[in-house]
Amino acid sequence: MALDKDKVAHIARLARIRVEDKDLAPIGKELDQILSWIEQLNEVDTADIAPMTSVVSLKLKRRADQVTDGGYPEKIVANAPAAAHGYFTVPKVIE
């Protein structure tokens, strides 16, 4: 698999990481190496094996429909970089 500069820029954007133009090609090469290492897994024949979602045989835990949490707005926004009147605030998102 070869990652071109556009692909790297796209991935960086999705991850919200700023990558300078000059760094796109070297990062692409680095990611290529990681990917081809992982691609070794493709050598294993998994045609008859169902996808595994967990290594332990547990059932999904469920809870009853009861209100047991919440009611602490000040704790929710305590670590927010910016807040006002109990809301988180962020730079204006314009549609």
Binding site: V90, K92, V93
Partner: peptide, 14 residues
């Protein structure tokens, strides 16, 4: 997201 509470900010209620 509330866009009309402040001229420069968007307010977020979770």
């Amino acid at each position: 997201s509330l866009h009309d509470q402040d001229p420069r900010l968007t307010y977020v209620d979770l």
